[in-house]
Design a protein around this nucleic acid. Structure first.
Lengths: 348, 348
DNA sequence: TGTTGGCACTCATAAGAGTTGAGTGCTAAG
DNA sequence: CTTAGCACTCAACTCTTATGAGTGCCAACA
């Protein structure tokens, strides 16, 4: 059986109409489409053929047809016309970003929230740190009699700080001693290496002082871990409630996606560009009724994270794919500006 | 009509049974309670009286009775026997806290999440900063050629730091100059004073350098604002979905409570101890079907925030009130340890 | 050979009728 | 004051019937 042009037009019309209305599409409706214009009976013959080919499904005998996962796949891979963003839309998105906090931690959280607002889907934003990234610099700054600020700078330019309260007074001697000790032990090591065991070993080297300095060592460990683990933000989880596809499963899905260890592996290892998982195509059984759109973003050449959309299989791919693409690109650009480390020139 | 002892027992039984089952309570059920043991007809007479007094409602003629808001109020204020936490329960909660991050920012977020898990309600945790709190100390630490860490210490002991990336190289001279400038201008002022206008005025004093140093000034402003605004964390919003009371309003409620400017004023000005808002008693019309339990927590003598539960009016007050009380107390204790500033003695 | 009108068939959905049962209010007797 | 008895109410359930959107298949037509 040939997948000829008319079959393609009919499949496209079914997918697009179903996405729009959520109702199974019947032969009469389709026959009235200008790009089809044949009688309902003919459409029925074609639909029977598309059903044979596994591209359509039928909820029950006397209902219209609905795209199968294979049907969506064929539509997305070769039939769909994506609608590129208009300049106005781009400007709208840019404006949303301009007001957001330039702090990279918050940037990602804001991006997840904004993307959710813009697309009506639940979103996820995640960063990953390459395993070759090392600790470049460690500092300890006394803030107050018994409080210090710990500072870790990684070789990829990420800087994290943490307030650390101690049970004793910190004078410059103590600070200098610990600063040197920490630099010697941590700098140059990859973040990946700095495990709980590594930290234990370091702590032991402090001998009788290990108990005293332990909060600081742990603080450094936590900062390193924070940098290495990267971030994981969700946005607009409540959007799932607006789709009746999720009527009673919404809670389960919300719990699932809130766990990085579950969703991370699925969305974290994809090629650049937008990857689409339709229904069962992803490996999480609970998400078999959902589609995932994921896009990687990068700082310059360095791939550094993923943003994704989670919604019902019946989502408007042709609109959402270009949007997600633009968000990922924009996010990369903004992060690049933040992490531009070698600007060099003095302005003041 | 006297609100005699038997009426009280009947009202208590109705409230408790309705909270447990969610179904209107009938005279036959009640007559079988050992503490009532009169015939259904007698119970009906009493119920008619309680209805007259406005303490009960009837969903429809042939249904049992349900407590009115006034009925809940009477129950909570004078009839309810709260169930104090067992030592085991306390230990369980303590254990949950012990594993949590001692960083006060995270402590509050964890507390909200844990409390939600423990109670099955949506939760909110919020800190407030008294208006007399001032900026005590400001520092700027060069981290990297073009990156510095800003540090603000407030007089209530809160320390916040922020990584700030600049478009120019920072040498010690620049850092020293700016440190002195910022200390002179900000230290001693209350956080409340440090508004956008205040910051503009400060910026102008930098004259031709104001453009260059602006990111730093803004950074300080943001840190001060962050300290002054305090925190606002939600936990277990998805718990609302498990109550059929919220079948389709859950989304609306979730959106509402996510806005501090909406919920903050309602829960922020209550006396110490646990305050209960039953249904319409709070000023937000969207929350008329919900009850709020709020408790203040404090560091030593200083009141510093609120934690609260949001759930259906039909919630188990006798269990939840002591739990919330204990969480608030625990939170205060843990924060006190973190913010214990004058420990003084050297341990090392 | 592809297209179309006609027709019998299917089946989800909605509407109506009847039944059930939990619960009430009222009354009169204990 | 308490209680048994009784008629009444009404949501919820079941059963039946009607409706209509949509199908598959066949025969006729271009």
């Amino acid at each position: 059986m040939r997948f000829d042009d008319r079959k393609k037009r009919i499949l496209s019309a079914i997918v697009e109409t179903y996405i729009r209305t959520g109702e199974p599409v019947g032969s009469k409706t389709l026959s009235e489409f200008p790009e089809i214009s044949v009688s309902p009976a003919t459409v029925r013959n074609e639909m029977a053929a598309l059903f044979e080919m596994g591209l359509l499904e039928q909820p029950h005998t006397s209902a219209g047809r609905v795209p199968s996962h294979l049907g969506y796949r064929a539509y997305i891979d070769s039939l769909m016309r994506t609608k590129p963003l208009t300049e106005d839309e781009k400007d709208g998105i840019d404006a949303l970003f301009n007001i957001s906090d330039p702090d990279p931690d918050k940037l990602l959280a804001d991006c997840a929230e904004t993307l959710a607002e813009y697309t009506g889907c639940a979103t996820v934003a995640m960063t990953t740190t390459p395993s070759y990234v090392t600790v470049e610099h460690i500092d300890i700054v006394p803030a107050d009699a018994t409080t210090v600020v710990l500072l870790v700078i990684a070789s990829n330019g990420v800087v994290k700080s943490k307030v650390c309260r101690l049970g004793f007074r910190v004078n410059t001697g103590i600070a200098d001693f610990f600063r040197k000790f920490a630099k010697d032990r941590f700098c140059g090591h990859t973040l990946k290496e700095i495990s709980a065991e590594f930290v234990n070993a370091v702590s032991i080297q402090l001998g009788e002082y290990s108990g005293v300095f332990n909060p600081l060592i742990v603080g450094i460990y936590e900062l390193c871990k924070e940098v290495y683990d990267g971030q994981y933000y969700l946005g607009g989880q409540e959007k799932l409630l607006t789709y009746n596809e999720y009527s009673d499963r919404a809670l389960e899905i919300m719990k699932l996606i809130s766990k990085r260890e579950k969703l991370g592996p699925v969305i974290g290892n994809n090629p650049s560009g937008v990857t689409v998982f339709i229904g069962k195509e992803n490996s999480l059984s609970q998400l078999s009724g959902s589609s995932l759109l994921v896009a990687r973003f990068s700082i310059g050449e360095n791939d550094c994270g993923t943003i994704g959309l989670i919604g019902p299989v019946r989502m408007d791919y042709s609109r959402l794919i270009p949007h997600l693409e633009y968000f990922a690109e924009k996010l990369g650009t903004l992060l690049s500006i933040t992490y531009q480390r070698k600007t060099g020139d003095d302005n003041g």
